[in-house]
Nucleic acid binder design. Structure first.
Lengths: 329, 329
DNA sequence: TTGTAGGCGTTATCAA
DNA sequence: TTGATAACGCCTACAA
């Protein structure tokens, strides 16, 4: 009992006893057993990080985001468990199971695709949940779920405004994996931005690509667009840097020089993007900070369970490099 | 008791009873509690993935490796916990604590730097351990630790032989973070390969870079080399694709065209490397397969604790692209 | 095939 | 300030 007190809250233990306990613990290598503690208290000192698919796990965003999360969580001595649902389970099902089995006491969740009822299902997993990069404008409080993300609409708007400010009017768009939240929001953002600027949205200049196969689908997607009758677009906005990179290769194959004949904007500001030829203009966001915020929200909710759900919108920033230039005449 | 039997091994339960139990469990959302099970059995059904630092976590290698690991482990219904030691703990200390606290029953460990006694310390963590990308030639069985990796010596040898076969004789080397296992092994491999081919190793043409800051240090490192008196090297072998990318930028700044005047070889075959200008010649290895193998080794040791430690050496492969060409005269 | 008893290591509660 | 007791949910061993 005294040992327990020493390792939890050192109150009500004499300094002398505490030292002797710690010394003895060091000698035999004693560490409190988390399973027994969890069993007794009903509180699990492990946080979960649930990613929808291996595809989104391997994307450029994940490492950063998880590293930010891990850094705040492990600072508190809590464990971190990572999970990717198999094809046999939906993401909310996996979330519920993780909590029901006692594998984690709170969860960060990163969706890719959002099926009907998912958010609602999450509200009953029985542990605090933070969605990472879910549209922060959506009504989430109703379901008691927090969210931290950046504003995809605004981010794409930055990209569109930039190429328009360079004189471009005929603008194509290469989207992400259809159905994925980020992809859908960015495409909506593109359409809204074009509309706002009173520019026509040509459906034949909008191609869906695939986040997991960005290079190949970006290449193919722009090929579909540039292969059509002239006049074609003079610029393309892309849903990821990988897609933009494939698109740049395609543009060159179609005889366009970048940025003289054709401008390209990416999304993510991947660290490779400034080393492409030409260096890629793109939209920057901080995955690390996103993960850190998500972790902090969960820690706060664990400390004070009555904390209401939060929504945090992080900044995005346009990084202008050399893949964009004045529209050709 | 009957419920317990149904959820573990369905033997010795009548079909009728089993169905009724499963139905009732579904209704109330019952899942066996892992903490209670672990407490009773003394076996933890969670595997750990321990990475030395945030730097190696964010490297190109990690996502792939972890994804491979996760895929085999979660297929078996086991949990996965990820850990990165804070500055207050060494990696073996963290490993021991994870096991002592009961957070995992077996561990994959990815070192960056290897201090004296680390391996020995790992042999006493009290759970099976697999080192990922530790030199598979080292004597590990003594310590009861498994290892899976590729042969850095051989991999760099592929790179050196390639440029030598193109007629290069004056070859520079840009290494990784000094002290990191992979960096040291690759540099040794470079020296050995040069020696084998009876080519001189010029110390002034060997520069240490930094895996975590590959682009910047690769750029700077090659600058140091090309800034010296002529004749300079005609080719450089690099410890990572990021370093090679920085080096290519530097070579261009020094007026060298690639590959006409100067050849560059990378290491990792990052997915971006084929989209650089020119596409990068590099050494390919499979992080995903590495992680998968590591997971399988642990699962086997958990199934049959008497399984002896294993060493697995995976293949590497030279991918020839356009950053290497015949040596200039 | 099903059920009972006991204990894994911890902590809440109460007693000393 | 310290210690005794019981219970968290599960599984091993044994009994019915």
């Amino acid at each position: 009992m005294t040992v327990s007190r020493v390792f939890r809250d050192s109150t009500r233990v004499s300094d002398d006893t505490r030292l002797r306990v710690l010394e003895a613990a060091r000698e035999v290598g004693y560490q409190p057993n988390v399973a027994a503690r969890a069993l007794r208290t009903g509180e699990v000192d492990t946080l979960g990080f649930l990613v929808a698919s291996h595809d989104s796990f391997r994307g450029p965003f994940h490492s950063e985001c998880f590293a930010g999360f891990e850094s705040v969580v492990s600072l508190r001595g809590l464990g971190v468990t990572v999970s990717i649902p198999s094809s046999a389970e939906t993401l909310p099902q996996r979330a519920r199971r993780l909590v029901a089995e006692g594998r984690c006491g709170a969860l960060v969740i990163r969706f890719d695709r959002l099926e009907e009822g998912y958010i609602e299902a999450l509200s009953t997993v029985g542990a605090p949940v933070v969605l990472v990069n879910y549209n922060p404008r959506a009504r989430l409080e109703d379901y008691g779920v927090s969210a931290v993300g950046f504003d995809n609409h605004h981010a794409v708007q930055l990209a569109v405004r930039h190429v328009v400010s360079l004189g471009h009017r005929r603008i194509a768009y290469l989207g992400g994996t259809p159905g994925w939240i980020d992809a859908d929001q960015r495409e909506e953002g593109f359409r809204a931005a074009m509309e706002e600027l009173e520019l026509p949205v040509e459906e034949k200049w909008i191609q869906a690509c695939d986040f997991g196969e960005g290079f190949a689908t970006g290449h193919h997607g722009l090929g579909q667009i540039l292969g059509r009758a002239l006049p074609g677009p003079t610029a393309v906005v892309c849903a990821s840097d990988e897609i933009a990179t494939g698109a740049m290769a395609s543009a060159r194959q179609w005889g366009r020089s970048i940025p003289e004949d054709f401008s390209v904007v990416g999304f993510d500001d991947d660290q490779w993007s400034s080393f492409l030829s030409p260096p890629l203009t793109t939209v920057r966001h901080s995955g690390w900070f996103l993960g850190k915020q998500a972790g902090e929200i969960l820690l706060e909710r664990l400390d004070r369970p009555d904390t209401p759900p939060k929504r945090i919108v992080l900044e995005t920033e346009l990084v202008v490099r050399e893949s964009t230039g004045p529209a050709p005449h």
